[in-house]
Design a binder for these strands. Structure first.
Length: 428
RNA sequence: GCGUCCGUGGCAGAGUGGUCAAAUGCAGCUGACUGUAAAUCAGCCGGAGUUAUCCUACGGGGGUUCGAAUCCCUCCGGGCGCA
């Protein structure tokens, strides 16, 4: 289980100038990742369904638009409805009625979003420009809903202020209860405004946490193995208790040497079935950093660039050797009226589209473009009708999921670099 | 006809002598959004100007006052009551 088959890897001759044998580990590749709920062709974009649903869409819609996998969140589901309830329901697959693979994030991102970034404008996963190292430690943000210690992260519930202590072990347990196919190690996601020293400190802590995740995960999986021996694999499947792949998460912020160190440290842990590349980036450095990380990570395992999903970043990620993406941007922006087209994003709320009876995009094959006009989506979004969010989300996710599929195809056909050039020329 | 209450920016609706170009909401316009506390948030929203500031403004007209959306007179328009 969890074999990763690389079907095609670019580099050497087909790569643009400057790409040598030395860095071919960080070049575009197409493959297949095997999970208990099916094979995932890679590169792939995971739609995000934080609270066990892609906002506004039924699983049928998510499947219909082409999604091969979705990502839910440990932190959110632990609070509501509770991982134990989802376990009782038979795991996320049964709970959500989603038949394909699922991955869950560990809660590590909430260390950032509810910590250093909480209540602070302009603190984001992706920094547009050098904004200075204003922040030494996340614990210094007074509004923060998280406190970090060696043992774990203490969260103060946004709902009622109650305290909840997330440790690596706890995250593993919760994620086992949720029952996704791929789960992530509990990490500390650090903002790009943190200093070098803090990035290093947090990275090292994340490494120690990663080892603890491995130990705990082994323990749980071994127990499952015992059940298989005792009762046979069929019983385990009846119980819907499938094996899980654990991915380690590389940190190190925007610092090349830290990223290298992190990729090296985690890459050596053979227990990991793949790797997440997390943390914050400076927009223009994404490719450089990810490229460096992937040069160091073992080639034969998949890499997931966590939380990245703008069009130019998807190309950059693939070019640097990334296999998986996930991102809230397409779905969130859709709800806010920003829609992808081959010629860039449009804001469907503008009165310009009030009487535009053409599809969002002429040649788009998505359900929305085949059946509705801009004027209709404009009207629904403006009136805050639920269907507006639904249609906009279907279109944006179709666009991104299928863009990554087209990228995959271009790798298989060895014309990735020209495809990228042509696509971005129109899009940007 | 008499009495009475009311008339505020695109709309709704505060304000009842100076700190009012006028609260707030809606509508409108811009812009953000990258492992989702986001169907969210931020800015603008009489005219001119980058700012300072200036101009025109609270139904019309006329007064009182250093000063009026706020007080008085009158006209116009509307609600209600009595004829």
């Amino acid at each position: 289980m969890f074999e990763f088959e690389i079907l095609k890897k670019l580099g050497g001759g087909s790569a643009p100038q400057g790409r040598s044998e030395k860095n071919k580990k960080s070049s575009p590749r197409a493959g297949i990742f095997n999970t208990p709920h099916g094979k995932i062709p890679t590169p792939a974009f995971a739609t995000v369904g934080t609270k066990a649903n892609v906002k506004g869409l039924t699983p049928e819609m998510v499947n219909e638009l082409g999604s091969e996998i979705f990502l839910a969140n440990t932190y959110h589901l632990y609070f509501y409805p509770g991982d134990k309830i989802i376990k009782k329901a038979g795991g996320l697959h049964r709970f959500t009625n989603w038949k394909k693979p699922i991955m869950t994030d560990s809660g590590g991102f909430q260390v950032f979003s509810l910590g250093a970034a909480y209540g602070k404008e302009g603190v984001s996963k992706i920094a547009k420009e050098e904004s200075g190292f204003l922040q030494e430690k996340i614990n210094q943000n007074k509004k923060s809903k998280v406190k970090i210690s060696e043992e774990g992260a203490l969260f103060f519930s946004p709902k009622d202020g109650s305290k909840h202590f997330f440790t690596p072990e706890f995250s593993m347990e919760v994620q086992q209860n949720l029952g996704a196919d791929i789960i992530f190690a509990f990490d500390e996601c650090v903002g790009s405004q943190a200093s070098y020293n803090y990035q290093k400190e947090a990275m090292e802590r994340t490494h120690r946490w990663a080892l603890r995740c491995v130990e705990k995960h082994k323990e749980i999986e071994n127990k499952k193995g015992g059940i298989i021996k005792k009762m046979g694999e069929k019983i385990l499947k009846q119980k819907k208790d499938f094996p899980q792949a654990l991915f380690g998460v590389v940190q190190g912020g925007n610092f090349l040497d830290l990223r290298e160190e992190s990729a090296d440290f985690l890459g050596k842990q053979e227990y990991f079935s793949g790797f997440g590349i997390g943390g914050a980036f400076l927009k223009e450095d994404i490719e450089k950093i990810v490229s460096k990380v992937n040069e160091v990570l073992p080639e034969e395992k998949p890499r997931h660039l966590l939380g990245i999903g703008e069009v130019e970043d998807l190309f950059a990620g693939v070019e640097a050797g990334v296999d998986f993406f996930d991102c809230v941007a397409p779905s969130r922006m859709a709800r806010h009226g920003s829609l992808h087209t081959e010629n860039g994003k449009i804001n469907i709320k503008k009165s310009l589209y009030k009487e535009d009876f053409t599809p969002i995009e002429k040649n788009c094959e998505c359900y929305v473009c085949k059946n509705f006009t801009k004027a209709y989506v404009h009207h629904l979004i403006r009136e805050r009708e639920m269907l507006g969010s639904t249609l906009a989300t279907i279109h944006n996710l179709y666009f991104v999921v299928n863009l990554v599929k087209k990228i995959r195809q271009s790798i298989l056909e060895e014309n990735f670099f020209s495809f990228k050039k042509e696509f971005l020329k129109k899009y940007l």
